[in-house]
């Protein structure tokens, strides 16, 4: 019996028991605990949100340290300053130099205050773009890690043009002449996340979440009740599996059953393997092909009905890569 069938049987039993008012809850829990650890255990979307935000969840710098043979962090946007909420630098893995860029959360109060809980300001996004241009110039592939509630909503951020900084990154990353691989490692919060997530390949860790607004924000705005965040987490379809089924991401990197924080080495090894596999695949293609595919990827996102074009999309008609 497969995991999926097993899960189904358990749900059926539960429903049956509820229907006949039988108390077999304990037995069911015992069975469920036996298959704990298998990957098709039903984790609710809200549980994934909590795992993604877990205070001990591994951060960008921890993964970079584990993945690379050597890593040198570089600072500053060359315009205003350095943003500790966004980190980046040059790393060597085997015989290849990579540029790493990622949001950086803290692991305790003091570090979180310094890193602004991973909420980057304009200088963070401009640092990311500076490092990306540098990577492009020297032909280094770019690896980005997304882990933020969102870009920082504050006076300083607005004054220095957070919108302009994110917008410019979206435009520039979409045509950058070097392969880009992104992984959402924790929270992928809205514009602040996508500001470093325009890439050739996008992956998510199993318990990462990625959405246009936080479940709390969605609950208070659309459901008009901030307490309905758990419900909103489900409605938003923000888990790795949801996004894979939508075709928004390319794959899921496995975590241990209790979350990435229980075994950093395990997750880092999986992450490294995934990055290297896809880097090899991308680097074996002509750069022109990589750019064409990136262009097609980002132009294709959207679900709508088009009465005029029927099956044939607008882009298929006008752009040569369509057919």
């Amino acid at each position: 019996m497969t995991q999926r069938e097993l899960q189904k049987k358990i749900r059926e039993l539960k429903n049956l028991a509820a229907h006949h008012k039988l108390d077999i809850h304990e037995d069911l829990s015992r069975i469920a605990s036996k298959i704990e650890g298998s990957e098709s255990i039903d984790v609710t979307p809200w549980q994934r949100v909590e795992l993604a935000r877990h205070p001990n969840r591994p951060t960008t710098l921890e993964y970079i340290e584990k993945i690379s043979d050597e890593y040198l962090e570089l600072f500053g946007d060359r315009v205003f300053g350095d943003d500790p909420a966004m980190v980046g630098g040059i790393a060597r893995i085997g015989g290849v130099a990579f540029t790493f860029i990622g949001h950086q959360k803290g692991k305790n109060m003091k570090e979180n205050l310094r890193r602004n809980y991973g909420m980057a300001q304009p200088e963070g996004y401009r640092k990311a773009l500076r490092l990306a241009y540098q990577a492009e110039k020297f032909g280094r592939p770019i690896i980005t890690f997304v882990d933020t509630m969102g870009a920082f909503p504050g006076i300083s951020s607005e004054e220095r043009g957070i919108s302009e900084a994110i917008a410019r990154n979206l435009k520039e990353f979409s045509v950058l002449k070097t392969p880009i691989i992104t992984t959402v490692i924790g929270e992928g919060g809205s514009g602040g996340a996508i500001g470093i997530a325009v890439a050739d390949r996008v992956f998510m860790l199993e318990n990462a979440v990625y959405s246009v607004i936080s479940p709390e924000g969605c609950a208070s705005i659309l459901l008009r009740d901030a307490k309905k965040a758990q419900l909103a987490a489900g409605l938003m379809k923000m888990t790795a599996r949801d996004l894979l089924s939508f075709g928004i991401i390319d794959g899921i990197v496995a975590e241990p059953p209790a979350g990435a924080h229980t075994d950093l080495s395990f997750v880092a090894a999986r992450l490294k393997e995934n990055i290297l596999t896809h880097y090899k695949a991308l680097s074996s293609k002509k750069l022109e092909t990589v750019l064409k595919e990136r262009s097609r990827r980002w132009l294709s996102f959207g679900e709508f009905y088009d009465p005029e074009e029927k099956e044939e999309s607008f882009f298929k008609k006008f752009l040569p890569w369509g057919s």
Binding site: L170, K171, S190, V212, L222, M238, I248, S295, W298, L299
Partner: peptide
Amino acid sequence: MQEGIYSLMQMAKTSH
């Protein structure tokens, strides 16, 4: 927001 992640992707699409 009702279109979730699809609406977020429009930011990158239009910028591209």
